[in-house]
Simulated scan of single mutants.
Amino acid sequence: MLRTAVVLGTLLLGIGAVAAQQDQVAKTQAAMKSNLKNALAISAMIKGEKPYDQATVNASLAELEDVAKRFPTLFPDSIKGLKPDGDYYASPKVWTERADFEARAAGFAKAVGEAKGKIKDLDSLKATYPNVNKQCMGCHETFRIKNS
């Protein structure tokens, strides 16, 4: 009886750990999708596909900044090696090259923070936003893998 209880308890703990991992993966994916949505909104203005809208720029930068501040915590050791559904997943380099990953995350956060104070019109958006995008994409080149 005691042995059955121990086995059942261990099984339940394992199930709980897997559920927590999946919850974290979902949070991480939601944050990345938020970044994409906001980057696309800004890019559409730069390309002239949408009219310039300061409220959209401000909201997009605020959301980008929120994710940027949480970025390193979105990739805890508990999700290392998981390949979730979706187009991309985190490279093992997120954990093996953690200092570089965190430095790039800090660079992205800094670029977003600086952009918030500079963008006041379409011209300043066109001049400032490319650095934000560069910081974002620079991380993708090293720390993101496409699902095949």
Rank of each mutant, 00 (worst) to 15 (best):
R3C: 02
T4C: 13
A5F: 07
V6D: 15
V7A: 07
L12C: 09
G16N: 14
V18A: 15
Q21H: 13
Q21P: 06
Q22A: 13
D23H: 14
Q24M: 11
Q24L: 15
A30V: 08
A30P: 05
S34G: 03
N35K: 14
A39V: 09
I42P: 06
I42M: 08
S43W: 02
M45Q: 10
M45C: 08
P51F: 10
P51Q: 12
Y52Q: 09
A55Y: 03
T56E: 14
T56H: 13
V57P: 01
V57D: 00
N58H: 12
N58A: 09
A59N: 05
E63M: 07
A68Q: 02
F71M: 10
L74N: 04
K80G: 02
A90G: 07
W95R: 07
D100H: 05
F101T: 03
F101I: 01
F101G: 08
R104G: 07
R104D: 06
A105W: 07
A106M: 00
A109H: 05
A109W: 03
K110M: 01
A111H: 01
V112Y: 13
E114G: 04
E114W: 04
K116Q: 15
G117S: 00
K118F: 01
D121L: 04
L122N: 02
D123V: 05
S124E: 13
S124H: 11
K126E: 14
K126P: 06
K126T: 08
A127V: 03
A127P: 11
A127W: 05
P130T: 04
V132W: 03
C136Y: 02
G138F: 07
C139G: 08
H140K: 02
E141N: 11
K146P: 00
K146F: 01
